[in-house]
Simulated assay, not measured.
Amino acid sequence: MFVFLLVALVVLVTDSATISLTAVSTGMKIHFDDVYTYRYMLASIIFGFVYSLAQTALSLYHIITGSPLFTGDVVFVFNFYADKVISYLLATGSAAGFGATKDLKASADALGLTDLDGYFDKGFASASLLLLAFLCAALLSIFSSYALPKIVTST
């Protein structure tokens, strides 16, 4: 998940294009942050990235010291719900990216703006990587749900 989010972040942040207009002597530069949906994708990537880093740090701490930083049943419940929230955030970011990119590309093609094909290709690539990160988060969510029956039966 971490690698997919890192690459999606790099691809999205470097997404820019120049539109050459015949009426204007210079081209107009468009960046990823000019599209609100790409901003939402960026936010979901950052939240997923931070969550992944925190989970990795806590796991490394547990491996190095031999004991978890946080103990108790609340940790399992928190991990379960946090995995759900992050996976939903990544899924909605990916879906929003796919939808907006498809609609914007269709509009640009209708206007004859072929200069933006690379811009939209990077949008699709970032949304695809975000979708792969969601699949990883969903898998982690399934694994974290296996700990819950142990908590319910132990109380």
Rank of each mutant, 00 (worst) to 15 (best):
T56N: 09
G93D: 06
A23T: 14
Y36G: 13
L60H: 10
F80M: 13
Y88A: 08
I19P: 03
N79F: 02
I86L: 07
T71W: 05
G27F: 01
L60C: 11
G66H: 04
T92P: 00
L69H: 10
I46D: 09
I46G: 07
L60A: 06
G66F: 10
R39G: 13
F76V: 01
M41E: 11
F80K: 02
V3N: 07
L69R: 07
L21Y: 04
S16E: 14
A17V: 08
K84S: 02
I45G: 02
S94H: 00
T22Q: 06
L42N: 04
M41R: 09
F49G: 02
L6C: 14
I19K: 09
I30V: 15
L9M: 15
H62M: 04
S59D: 12
L9G: 06
A96S: 10
S44H: 03
S25F: 09
S25M: 05
Y36P: 03
K29D: 13
T92E: 07
Q55E: 09
G48R: 01
V11I: 14
A8D: 08
A17C: 02
L90W: 05
L53K: 00
I19L: 12
D34T: 05
T92Q: 01
D15I: 00
V74M: 14
L12W: 05
S16V: 05
F49S: 09
V35R: 04
Y51A: 07
P68L: 00
F49K: 12
S94Q: 09
P68H: 00
A95P: 00
L53W: 08
V35L: 06
L9S: 15
G72I: 13
A57H: 00
G93F: 03
Y38G: 00
G66V: 03
H31Y: 14
I45R: 12
T71I: 01
F49N: 09
N79L: 09
L6I: 10
V85M: 10
L9F: 15
T22D: 11
A17E: 11
K29M: 12
K84C: 06
T26G: 03
I45L: 13
L60M: 11
S44V: 08
L21K: 05
L9H: 09
T71M: 01
L90H: 00
H31G: 00
V7I: 15
D33Q: 15
L6N: 07
M1P: 13
A96L: 13
D73R: 08
V24K: 10
A43H: 02
V24L: 11
F49Q: 10
S59R: 12
S59M: 06
G27Q: 06
V10Q: 08
Y61D: 01
S16G: 06
T22I: 04
V3P: 10
A82N: 13
S59G: 12
G93N: 08
L12V: 07
G97D: 02
T71L: 05
Y38D: 01
Y61R: 08
